[in-house]
Simulated assay, not measured.
Amino acid sequence: MRLRNAVLAATSAVALVLAVPVQANAATGDFLYKVGPGVPAGIADPESRHCINLFGATEDDPAFAPENFTNSTATVFLDFDCGGDVFYVMNPGKRLGDRLKLRSVVFS
């Protein structure tokens, strides 16, 4: 009787662990920005907690005008590799103007 109860308890615990949804490791949605003379660019469903250097951004010409249409908070950095002291935190749905310059981003 005890063995049957132990097996039933273990099986129930495993089923419970498998039934609980695991949080995805990506932000859902699009992060948009502009490069060069205003050419639109973006990232779809970016990976969370991973620094992303923005395609098209260079040392001479950073990206600008970010729009965070993901479900995660985006922290944008002026420097590559999410470094430096100049950064801005963008909540989901936030749009910023052409004056904000950025080269990398990380999502919560």
Rank of each mutant, 00 (worst) to 15 (best):
N25A: 11
V20R: 06
R49S: 15
E59G: 13
V35M: 02
L54W: 03
A44C: 05
A57M: 02
L18I: 09
A26R: 06
L32G: 12
D60H: 09
R49W: 05
P21V: 07
V35C: 07
R49F: 14
G38Q: 05
V14M: 06
R49L: 13
V39C: 01
T58A: 01
A44T: 14
A24G: 14
L54R: 01
F55P: 15
C51S: 10
D45M: 03
D30T: 15
L54E: 07
A27Y: 10
V17E: 00
I43M: 08
P21M: 01
V35D: 08
V20G: 08
V39Y: 04
D45Q: 04
Q23S: 14
I43G: 07
A26G: 10
D45V: 07
V14A: 10
T58F: 02
C51Y: 05
R49T: 15
I52M: 00
G56D: 09
G29C: 04
Q23A: 14
G42Y: 05
G38R: 02
A24W: 06
D45S: 13
L54V: 12
N25P: 07
L18Y: 07
A57H: 06
E47V: 15
Q23M: 05
I43C: 10
P37S: 13
V17T: 13
V17Q: 00
V35A: 10
A26L: 07
F31I: 05
A24I: 14
A13C: 13
H50Q: 12
G29K: 01
L32T: 13
L32C: 07
T28Q: 04
N53K: 06
K34M: 12
L32D: 12
P37V: 10
A24C: 08
L32A: 14
N53A: 11
E59Y: 04
N53T: 14
A19N: 09
L18K: 02
